[in-house]
Design a protein around this nucleic acid. Structure first.
Lengths: 212, 212, 212, 212
DNA sequence: GATGAATGAGATTTCATTCAT
DNA sequence: GATGAATGAAATCTCATTCAT
């Protein structure tokens, strides 16, 4: 019985989280009512409250769920690729490929709501920073490895490089959240070019350039 | 009398917008109550409603106010600088310098709320896209001019380059909204390096690289 | 479940309409607060709003409920009486008998509020005129039949005669709304006398009298 | 100075009462705001409050003003007419002639509001009943005189006859308040006929008819 | 387990009234 | 005297949450 129950509970919880995602992407966290979620999930208020103690708990669960699943696999794949340039391009493709497909718009829109909530809600911010830090660590390894190889300039702060990579990713998700029809291909090319020196075709940097 | 009145009205409106900004940055649009705004502005409910017809109107005004003022001056300055690299660096400095100072944290946090609202609110989204487009146009001129000069690769879509520049800016503002202590210097260096070919120190791109 | 629900809903709606009637008779539509209605109905605000979407909807429902139920039965009874005089007396008795009893004062007072609302509110006026017209049609048949028989002067406009009958009824209800102790008997006698030629005992009308 | 002041005060008061009348006829007492009245009167809130202590006072004044001015003259005129039938017809004409003209619709509509207020407001009801009683007294004299002359049946309660006369008047005003286009002529003919035995053309009443 | 009617605190908004200028 | 900005109590309505069935 506990086994069956556990599966049932997980199913119901997922059903509710899925519904809340759709609602949050459509109306944001606070304008979404419990009634909205119940209707979208096809459950009664009483049923929903059996699985989540409060709306806050649903918001927290949705925030957690909104973040990338542990991408150790992604990084492991990247590390299999020997050449730095191919490795970075592969990483970029892996991330941006996620932004295609039907569920991506809902995910992007919900993510922007999560950001807004992280700004004002200590708990959500805590979870958010933790996940972000974990992901950053994985990327940072790749960056410092690339610096060690002499493919990325060593005078630049590897943390800041990672921040820029996140910015290029999140900034684009924001743009897609607001305009879901935005195509990705040209943007991905630019990101690849930025990270592997293929944008700038002017005079090469002076030896000390970039050392502020 | 009209003179006095007009000034008075403008003052009060600004007072209310300022208060609402602080509230919105702290709690987000929807959890902020009119009571919060009244208290923060030091006015009674009736007084606030003399200047704004509804909470929605205050939100809309705050959204408009949150966006960069028309930065024609910024662009004009950039265009005075002859060399492309200096020009881009100047532009980057101009934008990121704004992110320092006391009000910047409030502005960044409020901006993330504006993004979240733009995702779910047609009116706010409309205003947002319009302003964004206007700013993008200015930047795009600089990008295409740089491509014409042969300083930026012409096979890359200038619109996508502008998108990447926005992403590098907005993505960082998001990070500062969530962690206001984040220092800017190292990040700015990376952005400059990215745009002027100073990050990548590995093998140069093959002639056809970047042509997807 | 639908059966139980339907009965339950009807019961609750009636409970709320009854309470609102008492409140409206006591304080009028606009000075009556939702709190008054909730208290009088013994329900919470939320419960009341489950059955009526707004105060306006309660007012509209009360206005409809305040009007005489379709009195086809009344008219059918009248038409069974062969003699015109008896027929009119029966009709008068039927109408005025309604004005006795406990609920009548509340009904009269609420009705005056409905009149006031009909004057200023297009929707209420529409419903009011429609019901009034339906009732007038029934009475008019009796009047024209009486004229055909030669019992009522044919030179008088039957519509105007019906209007006068309504006036004698509504005008008295107004008086009872303001002074609920007013006795009905003497008044009813006068109405009967007016309609069946028993008031005037002076010289008979000249043949052309009444032809303006 | 006191003389000038007195005139000024009276002028202003009248200006405010006139404005409030228009507002009350349009929206009813309670939905009318002080702002409505100020705007319609072309005065500021402060100015209005110099002449009336509260909205209630304006309502009370409007209620008083809404009632027929002491119609001693009307009655005196009637009493100059020797014959009962002419006398009653003259009285009826005098009353109903007032219902023509531009201001009459506003007056009728406002009057219905006054009735509604009289039902729920002790002060207004008091004033209303007093005025009503005064007017009734005058009419009653004419009725009893007519009974003494043998023109109206003496077995009918003179008070009830007066009530019926009021009902015929007020009931019609109600109808005109709701439908201002309603013509008066046919109705006036019916009222004259009712009161002077010209409606009923059937069998005469039995000697004891009307004695309940 | 599931339901959905009921609760009631709290949100937005209005408006009669005051008072400094 | 006149103005109209400001006040703040109170009204309408919503919605997260509970609990009897």
């Amino acid at each position: 019985m506990p086994k069956v129950s556990a599966v049932h509970i997980a199913t119901r919880k997922q059903q509710i989280i899925d519904a809340s995602f759709r609602c949050f992407a459509r109306k944001g966290f606070h304008p979404t009512t419990m009634h909205d979620i119940c209707t979208d999930a096809g459950l009664s208020a009483g049923a929903v409250y059996r699985y989540f103690a409060s709306k806050q708990e649903i918001i927290a669960s949705a925030c957690e769920a909104s973040q990338e699943p542990p991408n150790s696999e992604l990084l492991a794949n990247a590390q299999k690729t020997p050449e730095t340039k191919e490795r970075l391009h592969g990483l970029i493709d892996a991330f941006f490929t996620r932004l295609e497909g039907l569920g991506a718009t809902i995910l992007n829109r919900a993510l922007v709501q999560v950001w807004a909530e992280a700004v004002i809600n200590d708990n959500v911010r805590g979870v958010f920073k933790e996940r972000q830090a974990k992901m950053a660590d994985g990327i940072k390894e790749i960056v410092t490895e690339s610096q060690r190889r002499g493919d990325l300039r060593t005078t630049l702060d590897p943390n800041a490089i990672v921040q820029a990579m996140f910015a290029l990713y999140d900034g684009f998700r924001l743009q897609k959240a607001i305009d879901s029809d935005l195509p990705s291909e040209a943007y991905v090319e630019v990101v690849k070019a930025l990270l592997t020196g293929a944008l700038w075709t002017g005079s090469p940097p002076s030896p000390t350039s970039g050392e502020a």
